Computed example of a mutant assay.
Amino acid sequence: MKVLVTGATGFVGGRLVPALLAADHDVSVLVRDRDRYDPPDGVTVFEGDVLEEGSFEAALADVDAAFYLIHGMGAGGGFEDRDRRAADNFATAASAAGVTRVIYLSGLGVDDDDLSAHLRSRREVERVLAEGNFDLTVLRAAIIVGDGSASFRMVRQLASRLPVMITPQWVSTRVQPIAISDVIEYLVAILDVPETADDTFEIGGPDVLTYREMLIETGKLLSGREPFVVPVPFLTPRLSAYWVDLVTDVPASVAYPLIDGMTTDVIVTDDRIRSLVPIELTPYETAVRRALEEAEGVTIAADARAIQGDR
């Protein structure tokens, strides 16, 4: 199958491209700067920007399926408008090119009036893409655990830099994180499962945890010590965003929208994907250990009490 990956330089796209190659797909990518992308052997590279009509359409010629992995949040304020315009341009171009299928990785969360700006933007992108003349498959995920994930980077740095944390009330919010390896496996597998076309699915790992439990587990794996987490009621999402900005290196433009969505539970309520794509899900502890090993260049002990290797 001829497949196009947008966002190929990102956290998910960078892992998806080699996985698609390993599955014997004909892979091309769309990047904004060809000189800053080192493609795997066999990948065709197109340069363009979905915000600029006329710059990217050639990448869609003769494509069977396209992965839409573009999000504008990291570019600062106004990401909602950028995401909407980018999705509209892409849907129009993909429809004109005769693309049969588009796959979009969105965010997990209940559709109600309390959606954060981040999740509202994801839902708007889903709506815009759904207007295209192709089958749209949406996978909704909560925190993706892996080296390079902004959400997990916040968790890792908080757990490693603050042995005692005075935290916002959102540490009691429940979340269903998923390993990046499982996300990639889902994305590749659905290409061969026709029943997943033109539908929306929720994906998550096997563990439902609070953010407090995630911080504690990550801290134990990092140092062998359990961080002390004390939630307090007066730290609003906005105040806690300033706190995260001070303690971690996650850009404020990314941290603020993410934290805004941490006040409501994000867990899988529809697990139909499990019967269509029956993969073995990775436990949170295993996913964290792999992410830390990749990020830190160390071997994390399986008993979660020690770290071996040079720091």
Rank of each mutant, 00 (worst) to 15 (best):
K2P: 09
V3C: 13
V3R: 14
L4E: 04
L4T: 05
L4C: 09
V5G: 06
T6P: 08
T6F: 03
G7W: 10
T9F: 11
T9D: 11
T9G: 12
G10L: 12
G13Y: 05
G13H: 03
R15F: 12
L16T: 06
V17D: 05
P18N: 06
P18V: 02
L21N: 00
A22V: 07
D24Y: 04
D26N: 14
V27A: 13
S28N: 07
L30P: 09
V31H: 01
V31T: 10
V31Q: 00
R32D: 03
D33Q: 13
D35V: 15
R36G: 06
D38L: 13
D41F: 09
V43L: 07
L51P: 10
E53Y: 04
S55L: 02
F56D: 13
F56W: 14
A61R: 15
V63K: 00
D64M: 06
A66S: 07
I70R: 08
I70D: 06
G72Q: 02
A75G: 04
G77T: 09
G77W: 04
D81M: 10
R84L: 15
R85N: 13
N89I: 07
A93F: 06
L105D: 09
L105R: 03
S106Y: 03
G107S: 15
G107R: 09
G109P: 06
D111V: 12
L115E: 14
A117F: 04
H118S: 13
R120Y: 05
S121Q: 03
S121G: 00
R122V: 07
E124Q: 13
V125H: 07
E126L: 04
R127I: 00
L129F: 09
G132F: 01
F134E: 00
T137K: 11
A142D: 03
I144S: 00
V145N: 05
V145R: 06
D147C: 11
G148E: 05
S149P: 01
F152K: 11
R153W: 02
R153L: 07
V155N: 02
L158H: 12
L158Y: 13
S160N: 06
R161D: 11
R161W: 09
S172E: 14
T173L: 04
T173F: 06
R174A: 03
Q176A: 08
A179M: 07
E185V: 01
Y186C: 10
Y186I: 15
L187A: 05
L187G: 00
L187C: 06
V188T: 07
I190D: 02
V193F: 02
A197P: 13
F201E: 10
F201S: 11
L209K: 03
T210W: 12
Y211I: 15
Y211T: 13
M214H: 08
L215E: 07
I216F: 08
T218L: 07
K220H: 07
L221V: 05
V229E: 00
L235V: 01
R238N: 14
L239N: 01
S240R: 01
S240W: 01
V247P: 05
T248F: 04
P251K: 01
S253R: 11
A255P: 04
Y256Q: 08
G261C: 09
G261T: 09
D265G: 02
D265P: 02
D270K: 05
D270G: 02
D271A: 15
R272G: 00
V277A: 04
Y284M: 08
T286D: 15
T286P: 03
R290P: 02
A291S: 15
L292E: 09
E293K: 10
E293I: 10
G297D: 06
I300P: 12
G309V: 07
R311V: 11
